[in-house]
Structures are given as structure tokens and as C-alpha cells.
């Protein structure tokens, strides 16, 4: 029988001598996961290795660690976390809470798609301020044949912001000061000019895009990492709302603009006609 195979540059396994379905050893990008990485690598270094295929420098590890802390919990007002809490409050499965967070947090408004689009902007514009200013002034292009809805604002900026918020400024300042963060440093230096061109303040997605670029990620890798790194907050807020219960969770007021009103019951109509 011609057995099909899975091609991978990431993972290598040796089977246990008596069981082809159990690994005796696993190597990730050449490193022995359980014999070497488990003992010597941090989780954040292993995460970097998985995505980039090489061990990070100390500066890269600190940058990814800082980004992971900054993104871990956007807080319960964030749409993705809100979605996860909608799962938690009703007693939905844990996986569905995270699926909800991923689905909502995937979008072009504050989500991973926005990070991908901002990283594509970095690829196109680099550190050329004039290119950024021209690009930011242009309206985002709608592709009707794309499954993604058209972005409503320039990627990496806050569509409803008044000024760059404290957490964004603090994250940018910390990450930009690390070694090996030239895009973040440039962003720090040119933030005011970029915000002026966009007409909007910088958002956390914009800082994340620059950080992920400095980590050497492709836009697709950046999109994936952003999705992953924001899950911890979604998970704990979902669990917390499950404890609080639905009576303590907002349901909101409805204003129905085309309410037909209560339907007349058939019996009543018949009685009225009798």
C-alpha cells in the first residue's frame, strides 16, 4: 500500500519501538522538545521557535514576551472578550467561548485582520513617511469578491479615538526601547505625523503590527499570533461570567424601528366578527 505522508519542516518524531502511534521523541525545528527545550527554553522562546524556526535572541524573546503581556487581556469591553463572555454566561462549552473570541477578534476593526492589513502596509511602506502619509489618506479599498468586509478605517488606528491611550503609549514606549525593534522605534518617533495623516490615534493593533514585523513575522504569522495571544483574557472573562450568571450580565434595551405590534389572536378576531 502506498501510504500518504504529511510534509513538515517543523516537526520530527521517532516512534516508540513497540507502537507506531506513540512518539518516543519529538524534535521541533531540530531541537529535542522533551529532552532539551522543556528544560532549557521558556514558553515564549518556544513560541518564537515554532513560528520563526530559529531560537530568538534575548531581545526578540523580550519583545515577544512584552507583546504577549500587552495583548493577553484586552478587557471585557473588547468585542472578542464580550463574545467569549456571551458563551460563558449561558454555560456554553469552553471551546465555544474561545471560538467566539477568535471569530469576533478576527476582524478588521480591532482584530487580527487589522494587524495583518497593518503589517501589509509596513511591507509596502517600510519607514518612508511620505508613503505612509499618502497611504493613510487613501480610503481603504473594498474587494467585493473577498470574504472579508471592507475595512472602515486605516489599519492600526483607533476609529473612535480622541488621543492615543495610556496603555498604547506605555506598550509602544516599552517595546520600542528594546533591542531589535527598529519598526517600533520608528513608529514611536513618527507617531504624531502618522496620527495626523490618519486623522486617528494609534491603536494597540498598530503597535502589535510593528512589533510582529520586528519579530520577523509575515503578515499571516502576525495574524495567527495576534489571535493566539489574546485568548487568555477571553478565557478567564468567560469563566468569570459563568460564575456571575446571566442575571448579572447586560441584556440591553431594544428599540425596534419597524414593530408591527402584537398580532391579534385568531380566536379574538373570530369573536369580534361573531
Amino acid at each position: 500500500m502506498n501510504e500518504e505522508s504529511i510534509h513538515t519542516r517543523i516537526w520530527q518524531e521517532e516512534a516508540e519501538p513497540d507502537n507506531a502511534f506513540a512518539a518516543a521523541s519529538c524534535h521541533c525545528h531540530g531541537y529535542d522538545v522533551y529532552g532539551d527545550l522543556l528544560v532549557h527554553a521558556s514558553w515564549i522562546e518556544y513560541l518564537f521557535l515554532l513560528f520563526r524556526g530559529e531560537a530568538p535572541t534575548p531581545g526578540q524573546a523580550r519583545l515577544l514576551e512584552g507583546l504577549a503581556v500587552a495583548l493577553a487581556n484586552p478587557g471585557p469591553r473588547d468585542a472578542a472578550v464580550h463574545a467569549a463572555m456571551c458563551g460563558g454566561v449561558g454555560g456554553s462549552t469552553s471551546a465555544s467561548c474561545l471560538i467566539a473570541a477568535l471569530a469576533v477578534g478576527a476582524g478588521a476593526s480591532g482584530g487580527a485582520r487589522e494587524v495583518l492589513l497593518a503589517m501589509e502596509d509596513w511591507l509596502e511602506r517600510g519607514t518612508d513617511l511620505a508613503l505612509w502619509q499618502t497611504g493613510l489618506a487613501a480610503k481603504p479599498v473594498d474587494d467585493p469578491a473577498d470574504v472579508w468586509p471592507a475595512p472602515g478605517h486605516p489599519a492600526g488606528f483607533d476609529p473612535y479615538g480622541v488621543r492615543c491611550t495610556g496603555p498604547v503609549l506605555q506598550t509602544l514606549a516599552y517595546l520600542a526601547a528594546l533591542d531589535g525593534a527598529p519598526s517600533l522605534a520608528w513608529l514611536q518617533d513618527h507617531r504624531a505625523a502618522l496620527e495626523s495623516a490618519a486623522g486617528l490615534p494609534l491603536a494597540m493593533s498598530g503597535v502589535a503590527a510593528a512589533a510582529l514585523r520586528d519579530l520577523g513575522c509575515t503578515p499571516a504569522q502576525g495574524e495567527m499570533l495576534f489571535l493566539l495571544l489574546r485568548l487568555p483574557g477571553a478565557a478567564v472573562h468567560a469563566l468569570e461570567q459563568q460564575d456571575y450568571g446571566h442575571k448579572n450580565f447586560p441584556f440591553f434595551r431594544v428599540e425596534l424601528e419597524n414593530d408591527p405590534g402584537p398580532a391579534q389572536k385568531v380566536a379574538n378576531v373570530a369573536e369580534a366578527g361573531a
Binding site: 505522508s5 521517532e14 502511534f21 531541537y31 527554553a41 524556526g53
Partner: peptide, 26 residues
Amino acid sequence: PLPCRVLSHEGVARRRWRDAPLKPEA
């Protein structure tokens, strides 16, 4: 079910991890 042999490894050769900077030695 996928036995270990179906993984066709096409990546780098085996190597040793350097001392991790963020994690204390075990």
C-alpha cells in the same frame, strides 16, 4: 489515525538549544 512514520520531515537537522536567557537553569 496517523502513525509517526507519515511525518515526512523536511526541516533542519537536529541541534542543541543554547542556555535559555529567560528561564533559570533547572
